[in-house]
Design a protein around this nucleic acid. Structure first.
Lengths: 234, 234
DNA sequence: TACGACACGTGATGC
DNA sequence: TGCATCACGTGTCGT
């Protein structure tokens, strides 16, 4: 039932033990399965003589050790991610992997659904200043697509300012709708974020639009308005 | 190097092969490690005679088979969830487990951050009717906490109606703020959803508030108002 | 060859 | 006891 610890094997390889060794430098008929496998493999002992400094059994065993350790690291990597997820979701640390992943799937799916439900934005200009940034889905090439809506008093340099903001944030405008009414304007944009800065882009755009709107508000003729809404919707 | 397939072992157990069997009904010194383990274990062959109908070796091997199959099912369950996640996230089907989980962690973390950033709701009554339902975080006991904001013309039976809605949806009100100004009222609620109906509750509340607001709008003295905003924020 | 990712079967552990 | 979950070491495949 019991097999010798691999540790013992590694110690043996390291030269800490030289007992019971064969002329090839390791025990024949030993208890290590890996060793047995190797000894019965086709190229042993045929090539042993040619590799005195790195005997094939040592190399094979070193490879096995590497393999085992790499696999352990891989497991640890995966499990650490799972632990992170456990801490992010409503579940204790003893939730089993499958249930945890089920929760994760459900959560991600929910969020995907709900964000995609928020599709239509009012294009009609309202009486109050408004900024809405709606983070939506990822496109097939991994870029985050989101909608932005800006409603404020119209002014000549508003659109150029807006375009400058979009350019500086490396946002690609996929679609833009605009409506004006009684001196007020609403602009609805569908933009794609940079691949590596999806989420930051959302915040940056949010802030840029905010300051754009405040710039307009500070002009004398728009003192009467007040900012109703700053929202980041996800 | 090669070991006989376990399938062979199962076929043997099933009686498809009766060659090379010992008086105990199975081969001594066979090539099946499990069999070897069992044979060398302490309670064999002492108890063999007492269990003629279900020989311990059969039971042990059946258990082993069960175990193996259960483990396979477990793996499949986990992997199917991982596949679902692969289809939900921007990545191809060949993304390895660790990277996939890293993406998932990032995504869930992002969404958690951004939803929790939307914490403060304007309590000041606005001139326009508004409904906002903000799905937030999960509480430690797994209930979804969210904020709801309702702004409309005040009327005597508004609050009773609101309470009735909350009760019928089994929403527990954790906190409520209210402000009135010039006949208008804004009510901000922090509520906890039912554990099993988190997301549905959000939608139900959304709709209930909407109809509540429309009921108010249809009253003659509030004809002048219009509904500006119906938003579900996630 | 060597390394990385995966599925597999198994022993251990906890209910 | 049986059943479920886990970590582990290994064989194997692809690059």
């Amino acid at each position: 039932m019991h097999q010798p610890e691999d540790q013992d094997l590694y110690r043996f390889i390291a030269g800490e033990s030289v007992m019971n060794v064969s002329p090839y430098g390791f025990p024949e008929n030993c208890d290590f399965p890996a060793m047995q496998s190797f000894c019965s493999s086709s190229y042993y002992p045929l090539e042993v003589a040619g590799l005195a400094d790195t005997p094939p059994q040592d190399r094979a065993l070193a490879a096995l050790k590497n393999h085992k350790e790499a696999e352990k690291r891989r497991r640890e990597r995966i499990n650490s991610h799972l632990d992170k997820l456990r801490s992010l979701l409503p579940c204790n640390s003893k939730t089993d992997k499958a249930s945890l992943l089920a929760k994760v799937v459900q959560r991600v799916k929910e969020l995907k659904e709900e964000t995609s439900e928020i599709t239509e934005l009012e294009t009609f200009p309202s009486e109050t200043d408004e900024i809405t940034v709606l983070a939506g889905d990822y496109s097939s090439d991994g870029r985050l697509i989101f909608k932005a809506s800006l409603c404020c008093e119209d002014r000549t340099d508003l659109i150029p300012d807006l375009i400058e903001i979009l350019n500086s944030l490396h946002l690609k405008t996929l679609r833009s709708e605009m409506a004006t009414l009684g001196g007020r304007i609403r602009n609805v944009l569908v933009v794609a974020a940079d691949k590596d800065h999806s989420i930051e882009s959302v915040h940056f755009l949010q802030n840029a639009l905010k300051s754009l709107l405040e710039r307009s508000s500070s002009s004398d003729r728009s003192k009467r308005r007040r900012i109703l809404d700053h929202k980041m919707i996800m």
